[in-house]
Simulated scan of single mutants.
Amino acid sequence: MLPYFKEIKLKDITPMRYQKFINYLEALDQYSTRTIEIIHGTMYDALSMAVKLKKISSNPLLLESGQSMKFIQERLGHKNITITSDVYSHISEKLENKSVDSYESYFNSIMS
């Protein structure tokens, strides 16, 4: 992880930048899926600890972990969900694709 993120400040790790890191690991074709999952878990825990230590204001991986906007809003203490939406407006390709797939599946189910 260090070689990839060594020039990037903690506060600059966005969901999109993190997704590019995961894509980079997958493209190397050196790591098993399980190893990448372990790396993801480690990154999530490290970023959560950074939030607790007030090094960053929120964990950029919360949304990618499948949490709802409402959960994130409550977790971060935002009074208005619009604030949360603005903070997490840069959704990763992975989440966008998941949403499109889910919609297509739903649409196909009602059309058949």
Rank of each mutant, 00 (worst) to 15 (best):
I36H: 00
D12T: 09
Y18C: 01
V100C: 09
Q19M: 08
I81N: 09
Y4C: 02
F5N: 08
T82P: 04
F107P: 00
S65R: 13
N97Y: 02
R17E: 07
N80E: 12
E7N: 14
N23P: 05
I110M: 08
F21W: 05
G77Y: 04
I81R: 14
H78M: 09
Y18E: 04
E104Y: 08
L61W: 03
K98F: 09
I91G: 00
S68V: 01
T14D: 07
M1Q: 06
I8C: 12
F5M: 12
K98D: 11
I8W: 00
S58I: 08
N59R: 03
L53V: 02
E74S: 13
N59L: 02
L28V: 00
S92C: 06
S102G: 08
L76R: 11
G77D: 11
L95I: 14
D45E: 12
L63D: 01
L53W: 15
T42R: 12
S32E: 10
K79R: 13
K11H: 08
I22G: 01
E74C: 06
A50W: 08
K55H: 11
S109V: 04
Y4V: 06
M16N: 13
L47M: 07
L28R: 11
K94N: 14
M69Y: 15
D86Y: 11
V51R: 03
M43G: 01
Y44W: 07
T14I: 13
Y4D: 04
F107C: 10
D45L: 14
S105T: 10
L10G: 04
E93R: 11
Q30S: 12
L76H: 07
I36Y: 03
M111E: 12
L47T: 02
I83P: 02
I22L: 03
L63S: 03
T33K: 11
K54P: 01
G66N: 04
K54C: 01
T33E: 08
L10T: 05
E74V: 10
N80M: 03
M49C: 09
F71C: 07
L76M: 15
Q73M: 13
M43L: 05
S85E: 15
S109F: 10
E7T: 15
E93L: 12
E64R: 02
K9A: 13
A46D: 07
K9V: 04
L62E: 10
F5S: 09
D86L: 14
Y24K: 06
D29F: 01
S109E: 14
Y44V: 04
P3A: 10
I8S: 09
D101I: 03
T14M: 09
N97I: 07
L76T: 04
L53M: 10
H78V: 11
I72M: 04
R17K: 15
K9W: 05
L62D: 06
N23E: 13
L76Q: 06
S109K: 15
T82Q: 15
I83E: 14
K20E: 15
Y106N: 04
T35E: 01
K20N: 14
Y88E: 07
S92F: 03
S112M: 10
K55V: 00
K70Y: 08
E74I: 13
D45Q: 12
K54E: 14
Y44K: 10
L25D: 00
Y18Q: 05
I13R: 00
R75C: 02
T14R: 11
S48V: 01
V87D: 09
K79Y: 07
L10N: 05
T35K: 03
E7F: 02
I110S: 06
G41T: 02
K11I: 13
I39K: 05
I22V: 11
Y4R: 05
E104Q: 12
N97W: 02
I81A: 07
